[in-house]
Structures are given as C-alpha cells and as structure tokens.
C-alpha cells in the first residue's frame, strides 16, 4: 500500500510539474486541456468525473493548461453552491482527449442564449518563422459576425460555436467584431498580440441582447520554425582556419593578380586587399 501511495505521490508530482508548465505543443503523450468560463453572471463549480475540480469559477476565467492522460473525461458544471454534480447547469458532457493534442473546453451561451459547452481543439502546428496564428471563436449569444482586422473584414460570417484561424506576421493586430456584413463594431476594437510560435485565441462571449459581449484571450504555444541559418560573415577577414585557409586566400589573390578570377571571386578577393590597406 505504501509503495502504491508513493507511486501516487510521484504521479501527483509529475502532474504538478506538468500543470506548472505553459501549454506546449504537447508532444509528451499527454493531452493538454484548458477550461474557459464564458457564461455571464454565473459563478460555477466544475466537476470532472464526479470530483469537484474548479471551485467558484468565475465568468471570464481561464483555467489550465493541464497535462492529462489521454481518455474521455466527463465534465459537469453546477451552480457554485451545489453540493454535488447531480443537477448540473451545463452537461454532463464527455470530453474525448487524445494524446499530444491541445484542447480548450468552453462553457458558454449558444446563439439563442442557452448555456452549453464546446470542446475546441487548438491548432499547435508550427508557425513559419516570423509569423503567428490568430484563432477567433464565436461563443456568444449573438448572430453570425465578421471579424475586422485593422478595420477590414478578415473573417466573415462566423457563427456560434464556430472558429476561424489566420496566420499573420508577428505583431499587434487591432481586432473588432461586427455583425456580418457590417463594419460597425459591436465589440472592440482591441489590440491583439500575434506571436511567432503561439496561437492567440480570442473568444467573443456574452450576450448581445444583454449588452455584455466581451473578449477573452488565451495563448497556446505551438511549434515554431527557426531561421535557416545565421549568415554573419561577408569578407573572409576572420578566417580562423589552418594555414591552408590562408593559402587559399593567397591563391585567390594570385589568381586575381593574374586576371583569371571570375567576377564573384574578384569581389571577394578585393575585400581583404582593401581592408589590409
């Protein structure tokens, strides 16, 4: 028993470590899960597989990321004063989580204003060097929307509970949400940071009718692409090579003197001469 408890303690420690790390591209055989509360005006408790796991979880809060064994987890969301999960306000819903994947479970309103929950899969594939990913998710009680970036529609006709993804140069984007076909923001504009190697996920949540639409933002680490090299020499003056290297340089000069060098070689060969003066 003691051995098994110790094993459990170690497992707990591993989970602690995992939970302390930001969501990564999840390549460790685990599933990464975050939970977003997007139902206005309702502080809740979250039960996972019957156990209370998030106590007094407030609207707009984002919990996680957590590193979990792959499998199906049953989530029930209750009012915060519930004694157990026997009469959930949302769910129970089953969340099938696969290894090496990143997820966000969102408690939110559907387009008609009824509480629901949606499991989104976060795209953690590598971004090109210098670019980041922007994902927009419509989880608000509102009709379809357009997402404006810098004032012009970048995503059109996005409906609850759908998402759209853009790859953009790393930097800051001024984003706003407007009813589809319009450019008059119902939400925003807000500055959104797009980062190389990250998926910035923006949620439009709340209720249009109740005038409490809001944005929530989550960032998930993705794979990244390193530059292909670091080209930090142009002249050949710093040749640290063996005497052979110097012999090559001398040979190039000799060749130049003989007029036999091609254009490209001449340009290289003249540099040391200029610098040696």
């Amino acid at each position: 028993m003691r051995t098994r408890l110790l094993a459990g303690a170690v497992a707990g420690a591993a989970l602690t470590l995992s939970a302390a790390l930001p969501a990564t591209a999840a390549t460790d055989g685990k599933a990464s899960l975050s939970v977003l509360h997007g139902v206005p005006g309702l502080t809740v408790d979250v039960y996972v597989n019957g156990a209370l796991t998030l106590d007094n979880f407030a609207p707009g809060d984002l919990a996680g990321p957590l590193s979990l064994d792959p499998g199906t987890y049953t989530v029930a969301i209750t009012a915060s004063d519930a004694a157990d999960d026997s009469s959930p306000a949302i769910g129970p819903v089953d969340l099938p989580l696969e290894a090496n994947m990143s997820y966000t479970a969102v408690a939110h309103l559907d387009a008609d204003g009824n509480p629901t929950a949606t499991l989104f899969t976060n795209d953690t594939s590598a971004t090109p060097a210098g670019q980041g990913r922007l994902t927009v998710r419509h989880v608000a009680a509102a009709p379809a929307v357009d997402v404006l970036a810098g004032g012009s529609p970048a995503i059109t006709n996005l409906a609850n509970p759908d998402e759209a993804t853009l790859e953009l140069p790393a930097g800051t984007v001024s984003a706003a949400v407007a009813a589809t076909g319009t450019t008059d923001p119902v939400l925003g504009p807000a500055d959104v940071t797009v980062s190389d190697g990250k998926n910035t996920i923006v949620y439009a949540w709340g209720s249009l009718a109740d005038d409490n639409l809001a944005l929530a933002t989550q960032t998930v680490d993705t794979g990244m692409t390193a530059p292909g090299g670091v080209p930090t020499g142009e002249l050949g003056l710093a040749d640290q090579g063996s005497s052979t290297g110097w012999l090559v340089a001398v040979a190039a000069l000799v060749a130049l003197a003989g007029g036999g060098a091609v254009l490209a070689s001449r340009r290289r060969a003249t540099a040391p001469v200029r610098a040696n003066r």
Partner: peptide
C-alpha cells in the same frame, strides 16, 4: 480516475512545489 483528474485539476490549494511533492509527503 477522478482523483487523478482532481489532482491535476484540483482547486487551488497551497503552493506545493514539485520538490515538496516528490519528497514524499505521503498522505
């Protein structure tokens, strides 16, 4: 299974470092 999840998801408790945990504060 639920407890595994609870350990991972559990409500904010005291700040427990990995060192403390692995040092074997056996419950």
């Amino acid at each position: 299974v639920a407890v595994v999840v609870a350990v991972a998801l559990g409500p904010a408790g005291r700040d427990r470092s990995a060192a403390e945990a692995s040092a074997g504060s056996v419950p």
